[in-house]
Design a binder for these strands. Structure first.
Lengths: 223, 223
DNA sequence: ACAAAAGTGTTAAGAATACACCCATGT
DNA sequence: ACATGGGTGTATTCTTAACACTTTTGT
């Protein structure tokens, strides 16, 4: 087993965020071949001695200025390993899905122009990244349906309309306002903070916060 | 990037089968250090140029005599990558869950004594394999709840009591016979073959087969 | 005739869906 | 006073859950 040679190991991050009621994903513009100039998911090499999670943290920090601690939720998605997926050679990519809120401006001294794009309107993408994003969106949809994962897409205080609009953006269809409020209230996941959000010429909205900022599964599904 | 060194890449298979109404998992007894003599999931190295699925197929064939074509369903589970999980060095393992029926005797000229063990009564296991099996069982449970995955645990012809018992073995609790039959019948996944299974001093059971032997998700959940 | 597992329907409780008006604010 | 989005309840349909006896066979 001494002449054993492993494939290259890489990681990719699919970082979702809601912007203007739209589900968006973080992309950057490649500065090198292959796919120079094209948009791609943030990703990079995973060397020996580093876990995939550590590699992801490093890559996100260096290439996008995002600290993984600012992701409200992060979980391993899938490992993509088609031999031909990277033109440079056999590369196995462990992908992670992350959810965040309010990271739009993207500090960091990066050269790769990181930006969030609406998943409904993506630019031409490098590698098999369109498939990976589709897969991640699918996973996110079901995650939202049977867990409290929305918390990671919202600010610490939020209104019921914001909460509902987060669900609608991810699920891709509208929900009935009264039924949504009734069901979500019964789940007993959120409490009113006592404050209100005033914005515009209309009734202010009650602010709520989640009781727990950790993932838990729900007894019944949203869809 | 020329001095980049990847971790070792390995694959592991979690192969489930029902035996005597119990959910069982395939293990083999290690002949080499580390963990010499202990039971472990079938697994092995994934060299450059081979997909994880190809590596799994090769390893299962060589170590257990099982052809992956005889698995009714196989899907990627998770990638385990704690740096300390293999005492020989940093090894990242892509795991696959497989479901099969009737592979008990295990042909093949193997030296590692492959055997199926009930998940409720496992021997001492090497590595982090107890965690991996727990994770796989959890996934299987939810897979059975919202897809037609049972087909992969049953013979091509089966009775309603066998079908129900497969669910009970995986879910770990009993189901109401009449409700189960009603709901499963409504799903319209199976058709009577016209034959009967006679075994013992009681009424023979109608045999059914699945309309499709491919994974599809169900509108409503079993649990 | 008896033991053993297969097969079959109904009812009641709970969950999901559809639906329309009043409320609080800024201009 | 009016435009804007926030907030609220009920009736109907569908789904789930609980439950007991008859049928067919082998011995």
């Amino acid at each position: 087993m001494s002449e054993y040679r492993p494939p290259i190991l890489t990681i990719d991050g699919i970082i979702f965020q809601l912007i203007d009621g739209q589900l968006c994903v973080l992309l950057l513009q490649r500065q090198n071949i292959p796919f120079k100039g094209q948009w791609a998911l943030p990703g990079g090499y995973n060397p020996e001695g580093e876990t995939t999670m550590q590699a992801l943290t490093r890559v996100l920090r260096v290439k996008t200025g995002i600290d993984t601690k600012r992701l409200g939720l992060i979980e391993q998605l899938y490992t993509f390993d088609s031999v031909g997926r990277d033109p440079r050679g056999h590369a196995v990519s462990v992908s992670y899905m992350g959810l965040c809120y309010g990271l739009s401006p993207l500090g960091g001294k990066t050269t790769e122009n990181p930006q969030f794009f609406p998943v409904s309107n993506l630019p031409k993408l490098a590698y098999d990244h369109p498939d990976i994003i589709k897969y991640a969106h699918e996973r996110l949809r079901s995650k939202l349906a049977y867990t409290n994962a929305v918390f990671a897409l919202l600010p610490s205080q939020f209104t019921f309309p914001q909460l509902q609009s987060a669900y609608e953006a991810v699920l891709g269809h509208e929900l009935d306002k009264r039924n949504f409020r009734k069901r979500f209230t019964e789940l007993d996941l959120i409490v009113p903070t006592g404050e209100f959000l005033r914005e515009g010429a209309h009734r202010p909205a009650k602010l709520y916060c989640f009781k727990h900022q950790s993932l838990q599964s729900l007894p019944r599904n949203f869809d």
